[in-house]
Amino acid sequence: MRLSLSVLLVTLALCYYDADGVICPAAVTDTTAFLTFNKPLYKLQAGRFDAPPEAVKAKLETKKCADKISIGNRWLILKALAKVVSKGG
């Protein structure tokens, strides 16, 4: 439960930093993929950002923890993210 709340808070902090800001579509896509894709598929998704290999490795390590979040809680996080996106800009 604590991990899912942490992921939600970090997502909100990164995506909704300004009251009238528009959320970057790539951030929404990445967060959605992070929560829903399996590890090999997410690795392909993360590769599109041309990030250093160390950063991709760190993200995949974090994904191991996120993969332990129940499916129901993942959908709650995505639902909250959708509400934030719909109110942005």
Score class of each variant (00 low, 15 high):
residue 18 D to L: 10
residue 34 F to H: 02
residue 34 F to K: 03
residue 19 A to C: 02
residue 8 L to M: 10
residue 9 L to C: 07
residue 22 V to G: 09
residue 49 F to G: 05
residue 27 A to R: 03
residue 70 S to D: 09
residue 56 V to C: 02
residue 82 A to N: 11
residue 30 D to L: 15
residue 76 L to Q: 10
residue 3 L to N: 02
residue 55 A to C: 06
residue 68 K to C: 06
residue 4 S to Y: 09
residue 72 G to T: 07
residue 77 I to P: 02
residue 1 M to G: 10
residue 8 L to F: 04
residue 66 A to T: 15
residue 61 E to P: 00
residue 86 S to A: 14
residue 72 G to E: 11
residue 53 P to R: 06
residue 3 L to V: 14
residue 83 K to C: 10
residue 3 L to I: 14
residue 43 K to I: 01
residue 6 S to R: 13
residue 71 I to D: 07
residue 72 G to F: 06
residue 53 P to K: 02
residue 32 T to N: 10
residue 42 Y to W: 13
residue 62 T to S: 14
residue 38 N to L: 03
residue 56 V to E: 08
residue 69 I to V: 13
residue 78 L to W: 01
residue 57 K to L: 07
residue 88 G to I: 00
residue 15 C to R: 07
residue 75 W to F: 11
residue 46 A to Y: 05
residue 79 K to I: 04
residue 53 P to D: 10
residue 82 A to W: 08
residue 61 E to Y: 01
residue 6 S to Q: 12
residue 58 A to M: 13
residue 28 V to N: 04
residue 62 T to F: 03
residue 33 A to M: 00
residue 72 G to C: 06
residue 75 W to G: 00
residue 82 A to L: 10
residue 26 A to K: 14
residue 11 T to H: 05
residue 2 R to H: 10
residue 41 L to V: 14
residue 43 K to V: 09
residue 26 A to V: 06
residue 83 K to L: 12
residue 48 R to Y: 11
residue 15 C to F: 08
residue 8 L to S: 12
residue 40 P to H: 02
residue 32 T to I: 03
residue 8 L to A: 11
residue 7 V to W: 05
residue 55 A to S: 09
residue 5 L to Q: 15
residue 27 A to T: 03
residue 33 A to V: 01
residue 59 K to R: 13
residue 16 Y to W: 12
residue 44 L to E: 13
residue 43 K to C: 06
residue 25 P to L: 05
residue 76 L to N: 13
residue 44 L to R: 13
residue 30 D to C: 01
residue 24 C to S: 14
residue 72 G to K: 12
residue 24 C to P: 02
residue 19 A to K: 10
residue 83 K to R: 14
residue 53 P to W: 03
residue 50 D to F: 10
residue 58 A to V: 04
residue 7 V to L: 15
residue 83 K to Y: 11
residue 66 A to W: 00
residue 86 S to D: 08
residue 16 Y to S: 14
residue 21 G to D: 04
residue 55 A to T: 14
residue 17 Y to K: 11
residue 78 L to V: 08
residue 88 G to K: 13
residue 89 G to T: 05
residue 51 A to T: 03
residue 51 A to H: 13
residue 53 P to M: 01
residue 77 I to F: 05
residue 35 L to Y: 00
residue 13 A to N: 05
residue 80 A to K: 02
residue 77 I to A: 05
residue 63 K to N: 07
residue 46 A to K: 09
residue 6 S to P: 00
residue 54 E to F: 10
residue 60 L to R: 03
residue 7 V to N: 05
residue 31 T to P: 00
residue 11 T to Y: 05
residue 11 T to C: 12
residue 60 L to G: 06
residue 18 D to N: 12
residue 74 R to N: 02
